[in-house]
Amino acid sequence: MSKQATFSVKHSLVSDFKEITKMRLSLSVVFSSMAGYLLGAEIVDFSILILLAFGGYFMVGASNIFNQIIEKDLDSLMDRTKNRPIPAGRISVTNAFAMGCVFTVFGIGILYFINQQTAMFAAISIFLYTCVYTPLKTKTPLSVFVGAIPGAIPFMLGWVAATNNFGIEAGTLFAIQFFWQFPHFWAIGWFLFDDYKKGGFFMLPTGKQDRGTAKQVIMYSIWTLLVSIVPAFGFTGRLQLSIVASVIVFLLGLGMLYYAIQLYKKMTVLSARHLMLVSVIYITLLQIIYVVDKFIR
């Protein structure tokens, strides 16, 4: 085999691995869990942080692999997903299932080594995403509410990994990421509406790109903004936020709310894309601000 052919095969394998585990999404989840750990840890143990990163990636990777196995026929109908490794035939269902099982064992096993509660929440996340959220996506728009539960676990998972405790602090981190997911995923559901429709997915709360959906996007953006500054009022145990940090987070929230209102006013695919991008920036900066604020207070 020529060097060029060998490179092509390796490149294909790497690309397929990235796609079947949804690497960008998985890395964002790892980032969230590591932020949660840094918030919860009294003394940062880098060995635990590394275990959390690998365990978190395996956990999310497993969920994504099982999701793509279940949806392989529907994925083949949509432009965005028809070239994924399973519907395109580059990875067989059998091989993908084996990979998913290995990822599950590795993910839960690594997180169990940190503590039992972390492993338990990881297992719950995989179960809900694969066995409840995925089947519901073609049945009801309420699937987004179910999917928001495993989607909100990573931020608080890091806190549990650091403290071996699920209390008001972890619950607050969960709530922040839970409410944030609605404007984020409804924005995605809006600008991918036609493609989702080909696969039989109706992700928007009203099932349509209408004012009702846009109003709910605004409502959940407001809830996200409010929940995100709760730690500034001293109600959340060890999870605290300084006045300066809370003002910055509040202003970021107003920025996301502005784009949610723009979606309501314009009702366009472009405004939905803008909201999606801003929502990603918002949650990333929020987690960075929370962590930085803890260590400079």
Results as ranks from 00 to 15, higher is better:
T163K: 15
I43H: 13
L226M: 09
S76I: 02
H274D: 00
T104W: 02
F103G: 06
G56W: 02
V132W: 10
L286C: 12
A232Y: 08
G151A: 06
G253Q: 14
I218V: 12
M34C: 15
G234A: 06
A161Q: 01
P205C: 07
T138F: 02
A175V: 04
Q4Y: 05
S2D: 14
E169I: 10
A161F: 08
A152C: 11
F31A: 11
L286F: 09
L142A: 15
T140W: 05
I48D: 13
I65M: 06
K265C: 04
L285F: 10
C101R: 05
S2F: 02
I149A: 02
V144P: 04
V278K: 09
L277P: 01
G158P: 03
L111D: 01
V102D: 03
F202T: 12
R84Q: 00
I296Y: 06
S279W: 00
F17W: 15
Q209V: 10
L49I: 10
F235E: 12
A162V: 00
Y133H: 07
A245Q: 06
Q177D: 13
A96K: 03
Q117Y: 11
Y290S: 07
A170L: 05
M267A: 13
I124M: 14
V9R: 14
C101F: 15
I283D: 02
D195T: 14
A35R: 09
L111C: 01
A62F: 07
D195E: 12
W159G: 03
A260F: 00
Y129C: 08
N115L: 00
L270R: 08
H184D: 06
L192V: 08
W190T: 01
L263K: 01
G40W: 05
L38A: 15
I149W: 01
S12P: 06
L252A: 06
F54C: 00
L252W: 12
F295C: 07
L239H: 09
P87H: 00
I110Y: 06
K82S: 11
A214F: 12
L157R: 00
I70F: 15
A35D: 06
K22D: 09
G61E: 11
A96S: 01
Y290T: 05
A232I: 00
